[in-house]
């Protein structure tokens, strides 16, 4: 994998000397144990991942495949059972790395007894930001996530989507270099989803790195540069989104206003050139297809792992 390309191979503890690598995991594994130390779940099995600066990286996988576990390991919320994780050149358990990270959890775990302004001010203080900076950023972020009108209300009274927006604002309070988003679009209305995707692309434009996981494949397809597909804690696929989708030997044709005769004609043309017509109805999202295929394949042949990146 790419990790071997890191120049500081001899200096195992600090791979981030290569300023381009933002996240790196080596054989990262997590086994959840119960109180007595008995093994409950092997949530992650030997994950090797590299995320580079300026990338939008998507983690995909069915429910319970280990996406959130990966993120928690990267943030030091969990300690790995084996393997290592480095974020921004520091071990994942080092609090100093948090200085440049923004994190939006799976659900917005915020203090319900604070109002929006107090919440952002509080998290700003945790970054040791001076008062003037905190005030300015709070106002800017409240506008960005569009909850300015409700800024004096306690979060207890917020709807799910509103809380999610404050959660996002909270993740951006320190103007982070790396933003980790766990299912960013859950709970948001369609406009909110669109705004979220625009925001992510905007962050990329500012040169920031984004790691996100999501079930909404359309979202991932829209914004991500590279994706990794997890299944039961194993990495099944890894690569550039366009590359991954291009390897499919499929030509998609999109047209409107075709008559039935025209369709039969098209089918005849395909047949004439030795092709096989897969379908000629409304096209399915290709990533969705890929995803389903990977999952079905993984279920049929457990143990296969992502061999190499499709295109780097």
């Amino acid at each position: 994998m790419v990790s071997t390309a890191a120049p500081a191979a001899s200096q195992a503890a600090s791979p981030g000397v290569d300023g381009d690598i933002v996240i790196e995991t080596r054989g990262l594994a997590k086994v959840y144990r119960d109180f007595w130390g008995r093994q409950k779940v092997r949530a992650l099995k030997g994950l090797d991942l590299t995320v580079r600066r300026g990338e939008i990286f998507g983690l995909l996988g069915p429910n319970g495949s280990g996406k959130t576990t990966t993120i928690k390991l990267l943030l030091g919320l969990l300690f790995p059972t084996s393997g290592q994780a480095f974020v921004l050149g520091k071990p994942a358990t080092d609090v100093a790395k948090n200085e440049r990270i923004g994190y939006l959890p799976e659900e917005s775990y915020l203090y319900k007894f604070l109002n929006a302004e107090e919440t952002l001010d509080f998290y700003g203080r945790l970054f040791n930001l001076p008062k003037a900076v905190r005030r300015e950023r709070t106002q800017k972020l409240l506008e960005l996530v569009r909850v300015t009108t409700a800024k004096k209300r306690r979060l207890r009274e917020y709807s799910k989507g509103m809380t999610r927006r404050i959660g996002l604002a909270q993740a951006l309070i320190n103007d982070p270099e790396l933003i980790i988003l766990d299912e960013p679009t859950t709970g948001l209305d369609p406009i909110g989803c669109r705004e979220m995707k625009d925001l992510i692309l905007d962050l990329k434009r500012q040169g920031k790195t984004v790691l996100m996981c999501s079930h909404l494949l359309a979202d991932v397809q829209d914004v991500c540069d590279r994706i990794a597909v997890l299944h039961q804690g194993e990495l099944k696929e890894l690569g550039r989104v366009d590359g991954l989708l291009k390897v499919r030997d499929v030509t998609e044709l999109r047209a409107s206003g075709l008559s039935d005769e025209c369709k039969t004609e098209l089918a005849a043309v395909v047949a004439k050139h030795g092709g096989k017509l897969i379908g000629l109805d409304n096209p399915t999202t290709t990533l969705e297809e890929l995803f389903l295929e990977i999952v079905q394949d993984a279920e049929a042949r457990p143990g296969r792992r992502a061999a190499s990146e499709s295109s780097t």
Binding site: V95, Y103, Y109
Partner: peptide, 15 residues
């Protein structure tokens, strides 16, 4: 229990 601690310890706050 409420997991609000997640948003604290992922900031540069020392234990």
């Amino acid at each position: 229990k409420n997991k609000t601690i997640y948003t604290i310890v992922t900031k540069p706050v020392r234990p």
